[in-house]
Design a protein around this nucleic acid. Structure first.
Lengths: 221, 221
DNA sequence: CAAAAGCCATTTGTTGACAGTCTACAATGG
DNA sequence: CCATTGTAGACTGTCAACAAATGGCTTTTG
């Protein structure tokens, strides 16, 4: 047996991860009121520890505070989806353009191509497809080499996941088709800034439109 | 005396504001290690209450966690400035473009013009000039009508303030000259998306360059 | 019966204390 | 004199308990 440095995660971080995945997986539905005492008991930690995790989630945009500090899982309405995807588009356009300026452009594109490959492979599996789609776009931001850009994008990831979950997984599926992303990769490969912007904005616009329609149907049904 | 709903801010939020302004004002210098016990004593609150505030600041990018959870005021190096201002530019370009699409464009421009006016008035006062400059740009984001965009921009405000403080107020001054913003307002008034992008990106690029040079000089001196 | 008053359960705000861990320094033994 | 081993101080992680506020339910009272 080899001796290696052992990982030491705090309970707070474990709560953070646990809560985040519970929310983004839909286990805790949008609008649901989180009671500190119940949650801390469920996680087996004290309230103070849990509260610190909740403050982070609050700032991440996954939780919103109601009157008297009561935290609920954030609900995202139709209007917000458009706003969300506009900002997302702006960030990813910058990411793609920055990517184009790197010396090792082709090497980085290879990484992105692997993400696309992954997206092709999981075609059919709902949960995995969402992960592969988000990983593709997140990787684009990573490959930009701009950590500020990445962290801004990550700040949107939570709300994006809530939106997808709230709109219904099946309905959001089309947005994550591998074909649409094949197109995206091709355009980026051409390294034409103007073209990249047009196509990416269109990509996001279409996705937002579809999600908004899905949510409309969801609320009506 | 009129009866109006009286504000009831929690101690946590007061700590949050107090800490934030202490950091962005340079009272707590970049890299400084924040000791929970000392700070809680200084604010006259318990550690738990203070810790919740610190978690928020951590996510806001004003604090970074070192080994064993020790929090320090974030230091921003030269490379990061470029990244920061690239993202900022992308967001403000989107803001200006969105602003152009509104029906009441002229009314909103008037609000922006007031901010510019304010910037002219405080010319000479260092502290007020920074506030007026940031208020101008923040207002641009508000006027876009996109709350997601605004909150993304706000997430950058902390690091931006640290940068300005760290580079030295006098040296950062030129970026906030009223003249440069006169130009900005004129361009937005023309409602030409392509033109707006070019000028805003240039504006931010120049500001970043200047800050990077200032920081270089700061570190050398 | 309706309105007001009082009471109780729920939930968050806040605190003080205890325990674990790291750093630096002193003590000890070769 | 050097290396190793205690040892003390400083901080953070975590917890349990108390206080305050809100909302609903019951009781009282006209």
């Amino acid at each position: 047996m080899s001796i290696k440095s052992l990982q030491r995660t705090t309970l707070r971080d474990q709560c953070l991860d646990g809560l985040r995945s519970a929310i983004t997986s839909g286990q805790l539905p949008a609008g649901h009121h989180l009671v500190e005492t119940d949650l801390s008991a469920a996680f087996g930690v004290s309230r103070g520890t849990l509260r610190e995790a909740m403050r982070r989630l609050e700032q991440e945009g996954l939780l919103v505070a109601g009157p008297r500090g009561q935290l609920r899982v954030r609900e995202i309405n139709e209007g917000e989806i458009g706003h969300l995807y506009q900002v997302r588009a702006a960030l990813e356009v910058l990411a793609a353009r920055s990517l184009c300026l790197h010396d090792d452009f082709t090497a980085r594109m290879e990484t992105l191509r692997e993400c696309l490959q992954r997206l092709h492979e999981v075609q059919g599996d709902l949960g995995e497809q969402i992960e592969a789609d988000l990983t593709f776009h997140r990787t684009l931001c990573e490959l930009s080499g701009n950590p500020v850009l990445l962290s801004s994008w990550l700040a949107l990831e939570g709300p994006i996941r809530i939106t997808i979950m709230h709109a219904g997984l099946e309905r959001a599926l089309h947005n994550m088709s591998a074909d649409r992303h094949d197109n995206l990769l091709d355009v980026i490969a051409q390294r034409d800034p103007a073209h990249i912007e047009r196509v990416l904005v269109e990509h996001m616009d279409e996705a937002a439109q579809r999600l908004m329609r899905a949510m409309e149907a969801q609320c009506a049904g």
